[in-house]
């Protein structure tokens, strides 16, 4: 399992993040390390840099980690979380510019076949208007 790129789902809502993760699990299976997080540090809607860093840690793979986000703050906080990782990990975590649910499923599908981080990201980003 650690041979595949990991996927992290970051939403303002824990329910959205968990739901998207459920869909990935059902559609793609267990071959991909998968974690989700959502909600601000008080448990309201928002995102938490610490929770994102913890999620990256849970799915860590030597091949890297792809993050799927919903709206603005989730992206900014994910980029902040990446910068706060140890130097040797920073270059192996990317935020995908893709819709969160579809992007997570597509990224995980690609990752489950052993694709590289770059391939995983490109597959997810094919969903976004060019």
């Amino acid at each position: 399992m650690s041979g595949n790129v990991g996927i992290v789902i970051v939403s303002h809502s824990p329910l959205v993040a968990e739901g998207a993760a459920d869909m990935v699990r059902q559609m793609v299976g267990d071959e991909v390390p998968l974690a989700w997080c959502g909600g601000n540090p008080e448990g309201g809607l928002g995102t938490s840099v610490q929770s994102i860093m913890d999620a990256i840690d849970r799915v860590w793979s030597e091949k890297g980690v792809a993050i799927l986000v919903d709206l603005g703050g989730a992206e900014t906080n994910s980029e902040m979380a990446i910068e706060m990782l140890p130097d040797d990990r920073q270059g192996r975590v990317v935020v995908c510019n893709a819709p969160i649910v579809e992007g997570a499923v597509m990224a995980a599908t690609e990752a489950s076949g052993g694709a590289s981080l770059d391939q995983v990201r490109r597959t997810a980003e094919e969903l976004s208007p060019q």
Binding site: G44, T47, S48, V49, Q50, G73
Partner: peptide, 15 residues
């Protein structure tokens, strides 16, 4: 601010 805010203003004002 980065760790506690929970919205985009956290990383922005934190930075």
């Amino acid at each position: 601010l980065v760790m506690k805010v929970g919205g985009a203003s956290g990383p922005l004002y934190g930075t």
